[in-house]
Every structure is written in C-alpha cells, then in structure tokens.
Amino acid sequence: MQSRRSPGFWLLITLVWIVVGFLLAPMFITVPISLTPTRFVSMPDGEYSLRHYETVFTGDAWLGPLGDSAMVGIGATLIATFVGGAAAIGLWRIGGRAARIIGVLALMPMIVPPIVTALALSRAWVTLGLFDTVIGVILSHAILGMPFVFMTTSAALEGLDPRIVEAARSLGAGPFRVVRDVIVPNVRAGLVTGGLFAFMISWDEIIVTLFVSSRSVFTLPRKIWSDIRDNLDPAVAAVSTLMIVATLVAATLYLARDLLRARTGATR
C-alpha cells in the first residue's frame, strides 16, 4: 500500500475522476440535447427550446406509455414486495436447510439472463392467456423484482433478534400477528428499499416486456426502444432528462434523509 499523500496515490485519484467523468458523461449530454430547438438530435447552438418537452407532455405518444409504465411499475412493486418480503420473513422463521435451498431458488429470476426469462415467460403467457395483458406484464416484472425485495428484507432480518418474535408469542400474539406487529415494523427499511429496487427494475425493463406484450401494453422503455431504432428523436432526450432528474431528486432526498438522521442522532 502506498502512503496516502504519495504522488502515485494522487495519480490514481486523477484516473479515478476521469473514470467518474466517463460514468457521468451520458447524463451531461442528454440535458442539452433535450433543449435543442431543432427537430433532429443536435447540440443547441446558443438557442434553447422546450418544444421537445411539449411533445412529451401533449398527446398520447408519450403520456400513454408513461401511464402504462406507472401502472405496471406500481402493480409489479406491490406484488414483488408482498411475495418477496413474506417469503423472506417466513424463511427467516423456518430456518435450516430447506430455507437455504429456497433462498437460492428465490434468487433465480435475478440470475437467469433476461432474454431467457423473456423467452420462457412469452411461451407461458401465451398458454395462460396473459400475453399482451396488463396483468401479464405486471406479473413478469414482479417476478424480476422479487429477488431484490427478498435480498434486502433478508438482510434487514439478519440484524433482528429472533427472540423478540418468541417474546411476542409468549405475550399472546399468534404467528401471523407477530409478523404484523413485530417483524414488519422492524424490517420496514429493507422492504422499502427492496420495493424501490423492484420499481426501478420494472420502470427500466425492456427485454422481457418486448416478449410478453405487443400493442395493448406499451411501456415507456418500449416507446424509447422503438424510437431509438427508428430515428433519433430529441424527445427521447427530453424523457431521459426527466428520468435522470427524477433519479437525482430521489437520490438527493435519500441522502438528505440520511444526513438529517445522522444529525438528529448526534444531538441525542
């Protein structure tokens, strides 16, 4: 290990910030493109316009997919959080070999390459009559989100004293009442984080969506996908900018909450 202040270390830091620049570059480019006054993708030349945002917010071309994505995202998040969270809690209580094996099983949708999942669900949904239905898309996104809720909830449970469950039962609470009164309030952070993951996965999902829907369900990524393939439309940049801004706002709120909590904790 090199001592902290050696020139070698600062050279490394410089390289690292170049990498960070590379990581953030796409975000810096979409913002100006979304403000271009021209009809085609270009860097604005001293002149800015909000016309592409107008395009996004008027008419069904973008608002339709936006609505579909929101509906699918919320539905998938709810299912993934309930199913994944409940299983994590159940397996935590059951424990042992069976729980470990099922734990690996629960992670499978995260491990299997999306294109393979897409193929499998596409066939199955046709058989079950779920192809190109809202329920079908919600279910497939929920399956993809479940492992994340399962992981974050399991992690939260690891820090929980199992004796508080036994304490609650000795005080008269039945096995499911314990879940509601004692376990869920103590792993809420894990459930919320997992739910957030599940929503982001659904919001961003394209591969499986391409295979389980065609026309009646048309999510935002699907709309972007078809636009990128056809021609480069600055409206895509406008939507991208909106999504980046939403992400940054969420991240800032998250960090601010953390910071706030640290500060109130410190004054205690």
């Binding site: 299983a87 159940g90 059951i94 669900l121 399956i143």
Partner: peptide, 29 residues
C-alpha cells in the same frame, strides 16, 4: 406444518409455477 410456510407459499408458487416450469418448457422446446 410450521404456519410460517404460508408466508413462503406465494413465492414458491410464483417461482416454480410461473418461472421454473416455463424455463423447463424452453429446455423441452
């Protein structure tokens, strides 16, 4: 059975019925 298996049941049903079986179908296909 331990009542907590009820909490695991939905995940088992979804993962096996709606994920692993379709996956196996692909293998078959």
């Amino acid at each position: 059975l331990d009542p907590y298996w009820w909490l695991v049941a939905p995940l088992l049903i979804v993962t096996i019925g709606l994920f692993l079986v379709p996956l196996f179908n692909i293998l078959l296909l």
